[in-house]
Simulated scan of single mutants.
Amino acid sequence: MFSLRADDDDATRLGFFSDIRDFFTGHTDALSEFDPEAGTGGEGGGVWVRPRLIGPDAPGALKSALHSAEDSGGDPGNVWIDLHDTAGRTIGSYFAGAATLERWEEEDGGTAVATVSCWLTSLPEAGAYEVWKTWSRRPPTGVNDWVSLPVGRREGWMEVARMYRGGTRKANPRHERYTLDGANIIDLASFYCAIGEAMNGPGGYYGGNLTALDDCLLGGFGPAAPFRLVWEHSDVAMAALGGLPSCLPDSSVLDMIVDCLERRGVTVELA
């Protein structure tokens, strides 16, 4: 379930709806962090989208708010698209700027479809849609659930792991030793999925790029360095990432990951 919430008033819901279309359309490659020319796909670091909100439970509030702003020559301003679990709790949110109602349709059976134009800083990952739906029923309780996602969709798992606000998840306490299961690290997104769970348990987040990983190593998103990291099945990552050039001469992507960890005091043992 989704809802539209006014940015300036957390209590104001413009409507609840059962589905959203044309919103989760991003296809980011985690390797783009090593491409200085890679962008977000939108001018000025953002992009305009036109999601369709399907089947609002309270279409009157949404229709009235958006039409009222439109009639007055303005727009409803900034809004949040919230995602809810089956109990109705908010588990994640996407910020959307300058929302305007472009089209309102009422289909047979009373189903309403609202097409809203809005501005996003970046496109939500296509792979995140199914992950949000799954986590809305139950967040992962075991590691490696992300392995079932094909390469190219694991960035969506990273996005949800970073944004998820489930009330039962807690960051791991600090230990002297952690084990990274590297058997499934076949691309860069796989590494971030795996280290997130190694450090913070099933569905855990511990960075989605080198800058974020470095921040996590300082604390605030789980255990802070120094600690010892035993990287099991490291040969899999060596085959997948060891030959990929990074933005530094004579350094592979794998070299930069290990360097980032060791710079913060992590003892990396490649097993």
Rank of each mutant, 00 (worst) to 15 (best):
G44E: 07
A38F: 13
G44W: 08
G46S: 15
E102Y: 08
P124H: 02
W48V: 04
R154D: 04
N144I: 06
V47A: 15
V113A: 11
D71H: 09
R89C: 03
P51A: 04
S64D: 11
G44R: 03
I81D: 02
E105I: 08
M158F: 02
D75L: 10
E159P: 03
A99P: 01
W119Y: 09
Y94K: 03
F34K: 10
D29G: 08
A96W: 00
A96P: 00
G39K: 14
R52M: 08
G45N: 05
S136P: 08
H84P: 01
G109R: 09
E37W: 11
S68G: 13
S72K: 13
H27N: 15
E155A: 07
R154L: 10
V151Y: 03
I54E: 14
G41A: 10
G55S: 09
D71A: 15
L66E: 03
H84F: 06
V131M: 09
R153M: 14
E130M: 06
K133T: 06
P36H: 09
F34C: 05
L120N: 06
A38W: 10
P51L: 11
A126N: 04
W135S: 05
E43Q: 10
L62H: 03
W146P: 01
W132F: 15
D29I: 11
G92P: 00
R50V: 09
I91T: 11
G156N: 14
I91S: 07
G74T: 15
G88D: 07
L123F: 06
R138P: 02
P59D: 13
K63R: 12
E107D: 14
R153A: 12
